[in-house]
Design a protein around this nucleic acid. Sequence first.
DNA 1: TTAGATTATGAACACCGTATAGATTGTCTG
DNA 2: CAGACAATCTATACGGTGTTCATAATCTAA
Lengths: 212, 212
Amino acid sequence: MEVNSVRKRETYHHGSLREELVEASVRLIETEGIGAVSLRRVAREAGVSPGAPYHHFADRAALLSAIAARGFDLLTQDLLSAVGRSPGASRTDDVVRVAAAYVTFARRQPGHFQVMFRPELSQPEKHPAVQEAGDAALKVLTDLVDRLGVADPQAVGITLWALGHGLASLTLDGLLALKAEAWNTDPDDLLARALGQIGRSFDVGDPGATAP
Amino acid sequence: MEVNSVRKRETYHHGSLREELVEASVRLIETEGIGAVSLRRVAREAGVSPGAPYHHFADRAALLSAIAARGFDLLTQDLLSAVGRSPGASRTDDVVRVAAAYVTFARRQPGHFQVMFRPELSQPEKHPAVQEAGDAALKVLTDLVDRLGVADPQAVGITLWALGHGLASLTLDGLLALKAEAWNTDPDDLLARALGQIGRSFDVGDPGATAP
DNA sequence: TTAGATTATGAACACCGTATAGATTGTCTG
DNA sequence: CAGACAATCTATACGGTGTTCATAATCTAA
């Protein structure tokens, strides 16, 4: 079944087909899952012939790569604003905030997130823009960790990344909600407690944050 | 291009088609990626007609579900033996060992792992066996955490799960190797240091090492 | 205005998941 | 052992998919 955005157009040229293809794809992922995203279907959503997308994207992977790269850009912004806007906060609070921002991004932009970490879909080796955008996002984490003054910033940076990514994945896949149900707990509360646990764990390497 | 396992058979019945379909699928995921796994292709690899698999699996999702469930069983075994075989070790060491086992599993069974956490492929809502097998694997983690004596076992359990899962995902997607290269470090060493960091973090929750 | 680049169409090809009908074989019952 | 029934496999068919290509429509710049 088509979404209701297939209204005919009168002009031969679409005008902004590239953007609309991306938007339609993200919308489709969020509503019907990534399995519903086919080039033909997306073209149909945009009211355009099956071959038209190929003037804007080399192939299906290129379309998904564009979505992934855009997603990493959005994530970078969210992570940056989570770190930046906290004048009186400790570094440890920044860690919790950035991890929370990671998860929040996954929940608010599920369409982007589901494509970002699927190399077989976005084929980053063929589309280096994805890799660069991903590096920029990771850099926010590593920069934060560098300012933390821990013994092994690289290891802590990877750990923080894995933590945020793991929490986001489990949340998005519904596994966290499932576990919350089994435990008779509110999913949001469980997530908040896990994030708090992260903060307490990272207190180990933070000399200045333990004072009340 | 076919793999070389398409030798003709003389019997009308295959004999063990179900197992061979699963094995061929796992082999295909590992060599050509999950995109190469189609029912027709797998049937071809097993030297069988396109419709034959439907006598063993209701649809493509059922085949992938079987792989996912089998993968969770293998993971459960690995996690159990990582926890069990350590008579003189502390609980914290168990945490590190179990996280390491999680990552090791992902590297040794990439074919299984890549299917296990893709709900849109394995459709756990239609195939509850996957969910049960996944719960059993998670239970190893939560049981371990319960014995840890922390204030909030649920939160710590989720955190540990997210950590192992995130590290495994980043490793499998090659992102960790990429970061190691950028940092001029050995990937295995970086991973080991991250795992060590986990141990130090979880020391916080240990009754003997509580922070102020 | 006109030449060329850009963007769309429509037909074609091979492949895919899946359904169905019929052929072959294994197994159980008498 | 014989026959019947169930399980398994083949052959064929349908619609959807990614992708290519020739062709048509439009935009842009000289």
